[in-house]
């Protein structure tokens, strides 16, 4: 059953009780939370995801709840817990929904060594997955969010899950995280985009999440073959420019942007090697989203 078919009341009840279980790409998660904003976050952004019954295996048990301290009356906070412990320090109460997203990113990135996990967004068209890698602030989320608004399938934002045994990119089509001016850029670019509550003053600045297209969520059991690795760089006023990058350089740049490259050792190196061998690699600078999307759509045709 899809989450959108449940009433807010029953979602809030599940979250406050035994937890709400969701299928997210290859993962089953169970979330407990007494925070109303977390329920609203799910209703707004996770409507197309399936709710699981009690008979499934749960990969990650997480909770977002205020700590039991006197401080809750002065400066309320929330904790993220995983398996009953707290991997992070508490954050201000208003950041609860974003904390859920960040915490779940961490759960996946640190416990899924069946994948090589690249700090990159991945989108797909015509069976071709494009991987957008790069340091935070390079505009990879903005670019992939815009592409998704124009009909590309969202495989994942924040992390690309590259399966080491079949070389495919596996979907986790969770909401796309947009920061600071990206929020306005996407709002203008696609007025239909659904963006959840906005949180100010986080470590990353102002943060909001864009709802993934229902069609991406519905196809989240289908992995895709990576064909391009692109390192985007948003530069105001710049031309749209796609510059080929040698496979060796691409491999080194990717290695710097992996979450578990060192944990995988030689397997990780070999996995990146196969990825770079099988894809075309580029540096990409842009300032105009329409031009960028037209170029990539052409490349994927």
């Amino acid at each position: 059953m899809k989450l959108s078919a449940s009433s807010r009341k029953s979602i809030v009840q599940s979250l406050a009780g035994k937890g709400l279980s969701l299928r997210i790409g290859s993962f089953n998660i169970r979330l407990r939370s007494s925070v109303g904003a977390v329920a609203d976050h799910l209703i707004c952004l996770y409507g197309a995801f399936n709710i699981l019954d009690g008979l499934d295996f749960i990969d990650f048990n997480v909770a977002i709840n205020p700590p039991l301290s006197l401080r809750r009356y002065l400066r309320p906070q929330v904790n993220f817990s995983f398996d009953g412990y707290f991997p992070f320090k508490p954050l201000p109460y208003a950041q609860a929904p974003a904390f859920f997203e960040w915490g779940l990113n961490w759960c996946i990135a640190s416990h899924s060594n069946q994948f090589l996990i690249i700090h990159a967004a991945a989108v797909e068209l015509n069976g071709q997955a494009f991987i957008f890698a790069g340091i935070p602030g390079s505009g990879k989320s903005t670019l992939s969010a815009a592409m998704v608004c124009r009909g590309w399938r969202l495989l994942s934002d924040e992390m690309t899950l590259l399966c080491l045994s079949d070389g495919l990119a596996y979907p986790v089509p969770r909401p796309v995280s947009l920061k600071n001016q990206s929020l306005d850029i996407i709002r203008q670019f696609s007025p239909d985009a659904i963006i959840g509550s906005i949180v100010n003053d986080t470590l990353k600045g102002t943060v909001g999440h864009m709802r993934p297209p229902d069609s991406s969520v519905e196809r989240s059991a289908t992995p895709a073959l990576p064909t391009k690795v692109i390192f985007p760089k948003y530069k105001q006023g710049s031309q749209t420019e796609l510059a080929p990058l040698s496979k060796a350089k691409a491999l080194l740049k990717l290695a710097e942007n992996c979450f578990n490259y060192s944990a995988l050792g030689k397997e990780g190196f070999d996995g990146l090697g196969r990825l770079c061998d099988a894809t075309d690699c580029y540096d990409f600078s842009y300032s105009n989203l329409d031009e960028a999307i037209a170029l990539f759509t052409e490349l994927a045709s």
């Binding site: 089953n28 295996f57 060594n113 069946q114 944990a263 050792g265 397997e267």
Partner: peptide, 20 residues
């Protein structure tokens, strides 16, 4: 079963890197 096996293998991979 496949799902728990992934987690166990994932931790064995980590343990191997840890030993290194």
């Amino acid at each position: 079963p496949a799902q728990p096996l992934l987690h166990i293998k994932s931790s064995l991979t980590f343990a191997k890197a840890f030993e290194c």
